[in-house]
Design a protein around this nucleic acid. Structure first.
Lengths: 207, 207
DNA sequence: CAGTTCACGATTGTTAACAATCTTTGTCAA
DNA sequence: TTGACAAAGATTGTTAACAATCGTGAACTG
């Protein structure tokens, strides 16, 4: 989610055991769950690799988000009184702080998390889960196809979307979100892949 | 999915090993995956149980479907030329056959599968996966709260939805689907739970 | 007789050794 | 030098034994 592990990076079981000080069972359970979410791919007898979405899968993710998120924000805006929007206002504040401090990985993480929290605001567990998956996959895709500067969402689009929701303007909120998703997608270069990567231990070792 | 296992049924590991002639590892992997999809619940040190959705979770599932499916069929109807609808026409045929033969479990399975195939028709893997999960959960819910006669979807609503899609009438398709979902939901009695159940082996043994 | 405690049995969680598979490296020959 | 082949090493998959936990029922006490 923070793009510290590039697609196709191999996740060695023994390495992970040492890194996190757990037995192989835990590691394998985690890998299985991650693969069920499409975050990694398990190749039989060959190990686990960070998923490397192709063009088709990438457009599937965006198509799915285009299907789900617009009705979602519309619903939030329509009955904004029914929902708890404080998570969202607090989140915008966090994003601003991170942007001031220029904490790159934090900005990336929060950019995705905003969309997750939109789903969270509905109070619907399933919508939240679906959104989590879609956002995670989007992170992977942006890491693969995105140019480095716009890896995060454009500066104040999140804030504007939230304002539209708060002012109970469903139409505007929906439009802003659609163009926001379009911005993200158009910032990608689907032809050229970004740098590959390795040396797993040093990356995860910082925890 | 066929409602052969009632909610809260315990899934004993040793039993499953015998039933399917596999080692414990396979069984535990399967249970972990099923729990990640919310089909079963894993209680620490106490085992796996078929999920037993409460009222809140049930309404979450229907709310999620209400959010996703209407835009989905609208999209199918708008560009029905872009999609392969043969799966759906063939499916309707299967449903009719099963209904003639009065094969109850088959009807239930196919009723859910229609909605899955709507998602499949878009060709979008993620939408398909989400729909699969939602349909599965719906099966559980119908099994729990549904009166026995309308456990399946009303007779020709699926057929009408498909016709609306084929005739490229997005508005009608969306309306039909919404009222279809409403029919399913209103057929539920959220207060009284249906029969519990046990004896796992005989149920799964038929395979 | 009701309620509590304890111990046993059953079931799940974990570990470690073993088996199977793949990758790599080294050797040989063309 | 390049290719194929073989053996060694590394990594994943599986199995079985062990440890920990929980539920149940019997025994005991008030």
């Amino acid at each position: 989610m923070e793009q510290r592990l590039a697609p196709n990076t191999k996740l060695n079981e023994a390495r992970l055991c040492e890194t996190f000080n757990v037995g192989r069972m835990r590691v394998r359970r985690a890998l299985l769950l991650l693969s069920s979410q499409g975050i990694i791919k398990l190749h039989s007898n060959r190990g686990a690799y960070i998923a490397c979405p192709n063009k088709s899968e990438a457009s599937d993710v965006f198509a799915a988000r285009m299907l789900i998120e617009p009705p979602l924000v519309r619903q939030l805006a329509q009955k904004s009184g029914d929902f708890d929007l404080t998570i969202l206002t607090e989140h915008i504040a966090l994003e601003n702080i991170a942007r001031e401090k220029k904490e790159r990985t934090e900005i990336i993480r929060l950019s995705g998390e905003f969309h997750t929290k939109l789903a969270q605001a509905t109070g619907n567990k399933f919508i939240l889960r679906m959104m989590r998956e879609l956002v995670t996959r989007t992170s992977l895709i942006v890491g693969l196809f995105g140019s480095s500067e716009n890896a995060s969402c454009p500066d104040d689009e999140h804030s504007n979307i939230l304002k539209a929701i708060q002012s109970q303007n469903p139409k505007l909120a929906e439009e802003l979100l659609i163009s926001h998703l379009n911005h993200i997608q158009s910032g990608l270069d689907m032809e050229t892949r970004q740098k590959p990567q390795d040396d797993l231990a040093t990356i995860l070792g910082s925890d």
